[in-house]
């Protein structure tokens, strides 16, 4: 060998570089490049277009640089968003509706995940399958089914009227109640699965120890099981809360026409008003609001990864 291998910090850098020029680098590079181009770069492009103004052109927004090369971008759209009480209200209401629905999903999902995790292996697999099965059949069609169930002339009102329990149909569709039901229903599996994964790995001997030492079952649950299942609760809550905040289909099909949900306003701004630049700024602000929950989710995910 003519040269001695480099030592110290230089070799660490070389090791870092050689990863990307080895076969492993190629395996990592392909999905990395794909996600970089089609997931990360698009955010930069949305931000860039949010700085333009709408224009009758192809594509329908003003260029960022004028013919003389001068910078023409502005925070015009953001100004519009912050000045308009409707948009502010929509952001707040989206966070509120997503928050309540996440809480409802947690309250329904926790006992289910608990029972599944404590069941015999065969029963456990069957119950897990039962949780997943609705998820595999179309989301859109299930929301549509909820619509027929909750309509004024729908199943629930029909049954209640026939039983004589009510005189006039209860209005459920086009209320926030319908949104809570719709979101909790469609996102329930996303809450149950991470909760189940955490509970299934829980060291149950700790709970037994607490009970042996005289703890009542519900107290052992509160003091041992519940705190240990917090990572699963966070992962599940984020899997429900984040997409629910930007949900479009559920507010569109179950909510009122003036429901203040940001996903729906973004859609209408884009498709009905054809204002691509305002829609882009709506997306950017929504993303900024969700950065914190997304980071929380990622921390929960990487903890899960470390444990695995």
């Amino acid at each position: 060998m003519a040269e001695a291998p480099a030592s110290g910090p230089a070799s660490t850098v070389a090791a870092g570089k050689s990863f990307w020029f080895s076969g492993k680098g190629a395996v990592a590079g392909i999905p990395y490049l794909w996600l970089f181009v089609f997931f990360l770069v698009p955010f930069a492009i949305v931000f860039r277009i949010s700085l333009s103004e709408p224009m009758i052109a192809q594509p329908p927004y003003s260029p960022l640089f004028g013919a003389d090369g001068s910078y023409q971008g502005s925070f015009f759209n953001y100004q519009l968003l912050f000045d308009d009480a409707l948009f502010r209200g929509a952001y707040l209401n989206s966070l509120w509706v997503a928050g309540i629905s996440t809480l409802v999903t947690l309250l329904i999902g926790y006992p289910m995940a608990y029972v599944i995790a404590r069941a015999r292996p065969l029963v456990r697999n069957l119950l897990l399958m039962a949780v997943m099965l609705p998820f595999w059949s179309s989301f859109l069609l299930r929301v549509y089914a909820l619509k027929t169930i909750m309509a004024d002339t729908g199943l629930v009102n029909g049954v209640l009227l026939n039983l004589g329990l009510i005189d006039a149909p209860i209005r459920m569709l086009q209320t926030d109640f319908a949104l809570y039901v719709g979101i909790s229903y469609t996102y329930l599996p996303f809450m149950i699965l991470p909760l189940y994964a955490t509970l299934e790995r829980l060291d149950w001997s700790l709970v037994e120890a607490a009970e042996d030492l005289g703890c009542r079952p519900w107290k052992a649950f509160l003091l041992v099981t519940l705190p240990l299942s917090v990572p699963g609760m966070i992962a599940g809550a984020m899997l429900v809360f984040i997409p629910a905040t930007g949900e479009f289909v559920i507010p569109n099909m179950l909510g009122a026409s003036d429901t203040l949900m940001i996903g729906r306003m973004l859609w209408d701004t884009f498709f009905s008003e054809r204002d691509w630049t305002l829609a882009s700024s709506l997306a950017v602000v929504l993303l900024l609001l969700l950065v914190l929950p997304i980071m929380l989710f990622q921390i929960a995910e990487s903890r899960r990864e470390e444990r695995a």
Binding site: F43, M238, W267, A283, L290, I294
Partner: peptide, 18 residues
Amino acid sequence: AAPLVMPDVIIGISLLLT
């Protein structure tokens, strides 16, 4: 991790503009 939770409207509009 991010695509698992990212709202559809954000992915949709950003990809279209891309």
